[in-house]
Design a binder for these strands. Structure first.
Length: 135
DNA sequence: GTTCTAACA
DNA sequence: TGTTAGAA
């Protein structure tokens, strides 16, 4: 049995995952509804999570702390290519950013946790929802 | 005892 | 998101 297989084995119930991630069962179930995770089901319809699921939940938790909404997190998970090597040029003091530029900027801030001159992190929440719809 | 779904003084 | 009710 290889590592990948082992990591995807559905092993623990929500109770264990709850402690492993410091998330509430409510949140875990909520994230599943929004398709951020896809735990397996067994017995009488009870969820069984794998190590991968747990890691994903930890990642989701950190993104939530950064102020992202479900839509934003979905985008991050799908485009899991964390560090952009650096082919992106940041607009100095640009009052008007194109959607493309703003998107790249936000992705950088989110993955690097840093701010760029003239762009406040607090704008992430609002601008992100402008990209990946509102809720 | 634990987890599930659905719903909200 | 918290929390609770009722069932499995």
């Amino acid at each position: 049995m290889d590592d990948a297989t082992r990591r995807n084995l559905a092993l623990f119930p929500i109770g264990i995952v709850q402690r492993l991630t410091d998330l509430t069962a409510r949140q875990i179930r909520y994230y599943e509804q929004n398709e951020l995770i896809h735990p397996e089901r067994t017995d009488g319809n009870q969820r069984l999570f794998s190590f991968n699921d747990v890691e994903r939940l930890l990642e989701i938790k950190s993104l939530i702390d950064k102020g992202l909404n479900i839509a934003g997190i979905k985008a991050m998970i799908h485009k899991n290519e964390p560090g952009h090597t650096g082919a992106i040029q940041r607009p100095e003091v640009t009052p008007e950013l194109t959607d493309s530029q703003l998107h790249e900027l936000l992705m950088r801030e989110i993955s690097e946790g840093q701010d760029y001159p003239g762009v406040r992190t607090s704008m992430i929440q609002g601008e992100l929802s402008r990209f990946f719809h509102k809720s």
